Simulated scan of single mutants.
Amino acid sequence: MNHVAFTQMKDGTAEEYRFLERLEDQFNAELVERLLKALRHLAHGLSGYRVSRLEHSLQSAARAEADGGDDDLVIAALLHDLGDELAPYNHSQLAASIIRPYVKAEVTWIIHHHGLFQQVYYAHHFGEDPNQRERYRDHPWYQKCVDFCERYDQASFDPDYPTPPLEHFEPALRRVFARQPFDPEVIGAEPAGGFDSPV
């Protein structure tokens, strides 16, 4: 079989879906290569900062690593802005969706909200409320997101920071994405009301 016969999913046979599943497994095995390619592409994206978006991502991951962060946190820092090009108004949620099957729910929550939490640094310049993150003040992971933004994200636009190349993070990236997706032993408990719930 080279392709399925159906033109509507509801008409597919068990054999066709097993065939497609094998192809999907082969395709999904190349996920890390696609992530690396997408990260490299960040070198040519949004301009105006003193570092490229790739350098910012590498620097964020380097700071998390230097701070003793585990693979989950370091790789989340590496990928946190991966959505900038395709989802500029909700890039945080796109990045969180990419890592969600592979990392602790706490780390997914941090990445999901980092864009909103970052507004504390600049929203007032646009006449907007810089304290929108306060709606999450009672969330158990609130402070960890504050710390992520302060220590790894907003501080990582320094062209003089000793930043390792992307290859330095590749082993950790492969370890994280080699995990069984949605393994409850890794992810733990997700927020009861979902990732947008204040508590």
Rank of each mutant, 00 (worst) to 15 (best):
115 G>S: 05
85 E>I: 13
108 T>G: 09
139 H>W: 00
6 F>Y: 15
36 L>H: 00
123 A>G: 01
68 G>M: 06
119 Q>H: 08
113 H>Y: 06
97 S>L: 14
29 A>H: 15
195 F>Q: 06
188 G>E: 03
135 R>I: 15
175 R>H: 02
123 A>V: 02
16 E>A: 07
124 H>W: 14
143 Q>A: 13
34 R>P: 02
94 L>E: 04
64 A>S: 01
55 E>I: 08
189 A>E: 15
96 A>G: 14
153 D>F: 07
22 R>G: 15
84 D>K: 15
128 E>C: 04
147 D>N: 06
100 R>S: 15
112 H>T: 12
170 E>P: 04
38 A>K: 13
178 A>R: 08
136 Y>F: 15
4 V>I: 13
58 L>E: 04
19 F>W: 12
26 Q>P: 07
77 A>G: 01
140 P>H: 00
1 M>F: 09
180 Q>N: 07
135 R>C: 14
59 Q>R: 08
169 F>I: 04
6 F>T: 10
59 Q>I: 08
190 E>T: 15
86 L>W: 12
99 I>E: 04
174 R>N: 02
92 S>E: 10
87 A>S: 13
93 Q>R: 14
35 L>I: 02
55 E>D: 09
35 L>M: 05
119 Q>M: 11
138 D>I: 05
3 H>V: 10
23 L>C: 09
118 Q>T: 11
40 R>M: 07
78 L>M: 00
102 Y>E: 08
149 C>N: 14
89 Y>H: 13
136 Y>S: 00
66 A>S: 11
40 R>S: 12
109 W>L: 06
28 N>Q: 14
177 F>K: 04
195 F>Y: 15
90 N>I: 14
148 F>Y: 13
190 E>Y: 05
185 E>Y: 02
126 F>D: 07
199 V>C: 09
